[in-house]
Design a protein around this nucleic acid. Structure first.
Lengths: 193, 193
DNA sequence: ACATTTCGCATACCCTAGGTATGTGAACCG
DNA sequence: CGGTTCACATACCTAGGGTATGCGAAATGT
């Protein structure tokens, strides 16, 4: 298989991303040394800096990838339901389940806010999973299933709740009881039938 | 004012803590250089290592201090009310208000989880503010004001929600609307009267 | 087809900053 | 007043992120 330059470039970049992701997930950002990531892929540190402007740059790329996957997973789980309310619940459960994935846990929930800065992290979050949540809440409010209200603060609250809960589950907390507690919280938002 | 050795030691330690706190809050953990903290206090890096085993050690001490203060602030606000329900609401509002303090924001909410590791951070959190929340919920459940249920998962959810909300407010989100959204969430937990 | 340019990556180097090992002088203690 | 402790300074080590430059093969133009 003769690779032309574009293919070669893409292959190296992908390999660095994959290896970086593995290590960031397993060891945490600060314990990862860039030269070792490169070496494991069969290139040198120079190659890494040819593809990413810094260690944080590689991390950022990994974060985007993981975010995107997470958003898709959540959306696809939600879309398996017709009912708006069940869509919300399914999305939330999918998010919590995703928290057990070490890549999501360590990379997205623990390291990303510090490494990228909270502002940038939030912007990325907004593009993927957080936006879905806000949209779901908007639909529910429009349909009269929950009270009409500003959606953004509520979305932030729920997003934070689930981030924390996902970490708690990943660390050994009982997923069942979290889902139940979350269901109660959400149920409390419903307008009386 | 002639200081004896114990007093001198305490004074230096306090000065390092105070200066560290200022810088950690303003610049974030990674941008703070230990030697500069020491220099600003009028000692050298060696002194810092005489008092703390590492940069993370100084940070840990700062985190404990800030945590303790936060816990006290929340508890004292809550204790100004007789009604259990109002205690919960007051505590939550006090927590959200505290999030505007850069020390709380950057040190506790952004950096602490990564620097100390999520496990240790959670343990510290447990000792201070999180414990108060769990106790409040237990009391409310016992009094029949909210449904009888496992308290820990609910406490984690609410804690996460408020952490995130505090950050959001600190970054410019509207505090009023967050408080309203939180009130709705909490109100949904009440048993029908 | 051959000269020229591009570019993906390697090599070699710099420098910051966390951490350590050891020295020193003043406070303490018998 | 001699010895000990201890708070801190000085000097040094080292890892690792970042940079400057070189090289050889693929791409490109004539």
């Amino acid at each position: 298989m003769a690779l032309n330059r574009a293919e070669q470039r893409a292959a190296t970049r992908q390999a660095l991303l994959a290896e970086g992701r593995r290590r960031f997930a397993a060891d945490g950002y600060h314990h990862v040394v860039l030269a070792e990531v490169a070496e494991a892929v069969g290139v040198t540190k120079g190659a890494a800096y040819h593809h990413f402007d810094s260690k944080a740059g590689l991390f950022r790329a990994v974060v985007c990838e993981v975010q995107r996957e997470l958003g898709e997973r959540v959306a696809s789980e939600a879309d398996r339901h017709e009912d708006l309310w069940e869509q919300l619940r399914a999305g939330c459960r999918a998010f919590l389940a995703a928290g057990t994935d070490p890549a999501v846990r360590q990379i997205l929930l623990v390291d990303a806010p510090t490494v990228l800065g909270w502002d940038e992290w939030r912007a990325l979050d907004e593009e993927s999973s957080a936006r879905h949540l806000a949209e779901a809440l908007t639909s529910l409010a429009a349909a009269g299933i929950i009270a009409e209200q500003p959606v953004e603060p509520l979305a932030r609250l729920l997003s934070g709740a689930m981030n924390e809960a996902a970490l708690w589950i990943a660390r050994g907390g009982d997923a069942q009881s979290v889902e139940q507690a979350l269901d109660r919280l959400l149920a409390g938002l419903r307008t009386a039938p």
